[in-house]
Nucleic acid binder design. Structure first.
Length: 556
RNA sequence: UGGGGUGUCGCCAAGUUGGUAAGGCACAAGGUUUUGAUCCUUGCAUGCGGGGGUUCGAGUCCCUCCACCCCAGCCA
């Protein structure tokens, strides 16, 4: 997959890397890492970070580690690690080495001891509440903890005792000794170890003290020889702390932290917390709901990994706030599926058609191309019979000339087949059209009638070839562009039509297709078989993305 | 009232040492077409948050305003 077409265009991070390469920094080596916390599902915002870290390393012939940032056993578990690995591989990337912050717990502890010996860390016995009070505010300096001047010996002893389990949760904390009056709150003696008597999914009960992010991340990066540590822009003012810690210690390398802005997509939410609530309140069907921007959801929806990668490349990398339109994502998908998806026919809202001049016991086998531009995709046999189905919206009793479909007395071509004329309609007791009687012109297979104008081409499925399935079409999950920014609670802004179900027919061979393989249902959109088994066993096909529809614009 | 950031076309986003505004998406108008799809052609920022200044010349340098975002977890 690593062809040049996936190479990142010029951006501020690649500029930094090229500058580093030019002066021979890090011996010309580029090494990145993707460091998720295993506490939820990866989403398209993570995809941006994944593509960037793996993509940049690929572009500059470097390496990328997968590192689970598992320093908070209260929130994390090994199941999330498993799904994250699957999602990353599905997206198309393979890491050089898998690491875990917990791999470094012993070293992290020793470095902390080193800091205490240097009088740059101390055990604080203030309560969490008091620590907050002593920290000061955004505009007022904090003040030193009364425990700040404990002797090195006492600190050493107490920290060992913390590790040994001598204290209750929250009794003490290890803090860095930096500057309580720093204008940067992150530098006001940040805590780096807390006591938590809980089992860790990787280290079991070996530890009862766990290091915090700011202390752990920079050291982990250095230990792995990471050269460029890319992270969310929210960590920008943590950078001085990142550098401070590394400056105090003997490490093989001092990685450079570079922050870029996270992806925001219109009409959706991008926070794990908010998605979790949607899942827990059954507002969606689960973490893999096709309307969610989780990688699991996108996969179930039928998104092609290459299209997501293309999207991540096209949105660029910068530091400014951004709200990307869904249209860009959809465009990436269509571009990919246009060339890769074999064509087929499906009728979402069936209207029965009787070809009155075609005999009941006859079946004509038509050959239809699987792709209009790619002969290598071959052709398939499509049966033409007296009884078939077309889409309800492809017929009107009467319409003006702009309507290029079937009207009473008008002619239209059945895709891949004959030209038919609508002669009569049957209406049921409710006044709804129940059946259409048409006649076909046997001289029009592959050729247009010389003397008449055919209005257009519509798709269809023969009744002997029709498999009944459920189609799901999707709209954005939220009905407003910025569900996060609204005054209303975001859960109240869910689009009631975000998932519409249709009961219709498709060519029966599609029943054998696998989830993840997309097909274009001509004139409708791209679909894939849903991966979940339904209780009633009725097959479900999810719409990946619709076809561009210029008629909808004209028609309103 | 502290600190850190960001402001280039509706949405993203390029713009090396100042030299006279890339590209994509969207949109619009044509053409091709047995998918109102695809494809092709054309159009789409005298202006880069505002105002000054330096310069032959500034999105790029200086000054000054303005707007928006982030930070006070023993979360990451």
């Amino acid at each position: 997959m690593s062809d040049d077409s996936e190479r990142y265009p010029s951006n501020f991070i690649s500029n930094i890397i090229e500058g580093d390469l030019k002066v021979g920094k890090n011996g010309g080596r580029v090494s990145t890492r993707f460091p998720p916390e295993p506490n939820g599902f990866l989403h398209i915002g993570h995809a941006k970070a994944i593509c960037l870290n793996f993509g940049l390393a690929r572009d500059y012939v470097g390496t990328t580690n997968l590192r689970f940032d598992d320093t908070n056993p209260l929130k994390e578990n090994a199941d999330f690690m498993r799904t994250m690995r699957e999602d990353i591989q599905w997206l198309g990337f393979q890491w050089s080495e898998e690491r875990k912050a917990s791999d470094y717990f012993e070293q992290l502890f020793e470095f902390a001891v080193d800091l205490i010996r240097q009088d740059k860390a101390y055990v604080d016995s203030l309560s969490a509440e008091d620590i907050r009070l002593y920290r000061g505010t955004l505009t007022q300096a904090g003040k030193n903890s009364p425990f700040r001047d404990r002797s090195i010996e006492e600190n050493l002893k107490m920290f060992e005792d913390m590790r040994a389990g001598a204290f209750a949760d929250g009794a003490h904390v290890l803090r860095l000794k930096i500057d309580m009056s720093s204008p940067n709150i992150n530098m006001r003696d940040p805590a780096i170890y807390r006591i938590r008597h809980v089992e860790h999914h990787q280290t079991g009960n070996k530890w009862c003290i766990y290091p915090l992010y700011d202390y752990t991340h920079c050291i982990s990066d250095a230990l792995e020889g990471i050269t460029h540590s890319l992270c969310d822009i929210g960590f920008e003012d943590h950078r001085p702390l990142y550098n401070w810690v590394l400056d105090q210690l003997q490490l093989p390398i001092h990685p450079q932290q570079i922050e870029f802005s996270r992806l925001n997509l219109k009409y959706t939410v991008m926070s794990k917390r908010k998605m979790k609530i949607l899942v827990e309140q059954d507002l969606v069907e689960g973490w893999d709901d096709p309307r969610l921007p989780t990688l699991a959801g996108l996969r179930r929806r039928g998104y092609a990994p290459a299209a997501i990668r293309d999207f991540c490349r096209r949105i660029g990398v910068a530091k400014s706030e951004n709200n990307v339109e869904l249209a860009l994502l959809e465009s990436c998908l269509r571009e990919n599926l246009e060339v890769n998806a074999p064509r087929a026919m499906a009728v979402l809202d069936p209207l029965k058609v009787i070809i009155t001049n075609f005999s009941e016991d006859q079946v004509e086998t038509l050959k239809v191309a699987n792709h209009p531009k790619n002969e290598a995709m071959g052709e398939r046999s499509v049966p033409f019979t007296r009884e078939l189905y077309i889409d309800r919206e492809d017929f009107r009793l009467e319409a003006n000339r702009k309507y290029k479909r079937l009207v009473l007395g008008g002619e239209v071509r059945l895709r891949g087949g004959y030209v038919i004329r609508a002669d009569d309609v049957k209406v049921d007791s409710m006044g709804k059209i129940s059946e259409l009687h048409c006649s076909y012109d046997p001289e029009t297979l592959g050729v247009n009638p010389p003397d008449r104008k055919v209005r257009g081409v519509i798709h269809w499925v023969s009744s002997i070839n029709a498999a009944g399935v459920i189609f799901r079409r999707f709209q954005p999950l939220f009905s407003v562009e910025y569900p996060d920014a609204s005054d209303a609670e975001y859960t109240d802004l869910i689009n009631p039509d975000s998932m519409l179900e249709f009961s219709g027919f498709l060519e029966n061979w599609l029943l054998e297709t696998q989830p993840g393989n997309q097909y274009q249902f001509e004139r409708v959109g791209y679909f894939t078989r849903d991966s979940e088994q339904q209780a009633d066993n009725v097959p479900v096909f999810n719409e990946v993305v619709g076809l561009r529809d210029s008629w909808a614009k004209i028609n309103g």
